[in-house]
Amino acid sequence: MKIAVCVKQVPDTWAEKRLKPEDSTLDRESAEGVLNELDEYAVEEALRLIEAQGGEVVVVSMGPERAGETIRKALSMGADAGIHIVDDALHGSDAIATSAALAKALEGRGFDLILFGSESTDARMSVVPAMVAERLGLPQLTFAQKVEVDGSTVRIERQAEYGYDSIEASAPVVVSVVEKINEPRYPSFKGIMAAKKKPVDTLTVADLGLEPVTVGLAAAWSAVDEFAARPPKAAGTVIADDGAGGVKIADYLSQQKFI
């Protein structure tokens, strides 16, 4: 079985994120870059599938030079090889352009399964897996809390508010996973050392056969006109209890339309 896992480098989930004033894109230098947490679950699931059934896991990521660290981390967890799509022309790409680049990198490589985390912790759109599936003409099984591969049939439990739906499709297939699916492993020292020797192919926009004008900030379907920093936390209202504190709190809540 040949599995691709698409991963993204995101600013540390807990860090204060900033936008760059010059082009309103995310300031990736302002916070430590980490492997998107949900993508770790996708990597783990891919590793478990090949540990059980044999095969190969290829990690695919689009991002600037330093996103290579994220590919290396997935390799240190146990993935076999990496593909890094890196090109200045891609800076500021929206989900539509990202899905185009990923689809080009994935097509024709014989993947049976293309795994994604169900969303990134920075953009939180959850659309790239669906877009990639559409571009590749593959079925999509999204929000999986369980994945089973039985020959060429891929079956998932799709997480829902009321429980889950069981759905299946024939491989090749695009699957996105939710955090309920497993507990990702931690890269060990041996894994980190082994990852240094694993191959990572670098692809540019030209290698993918995409026109530079179709990707990047200028081609994005939406634009950020302006942004402002979050206002500082205002001091709270203190109500001294002079015997009527309860009434005053109720009045306050009522004014704020909480009650």
Partner: peptide
């Protein structure tokens, strides 16, 4: 590689 290992241990 030791910086990567520290990050991994910190996550654990």
């Amino acid at each position: 590689e030791l910086i990567a290992l520290r990050q991994s241990f910190a996550a654990f």
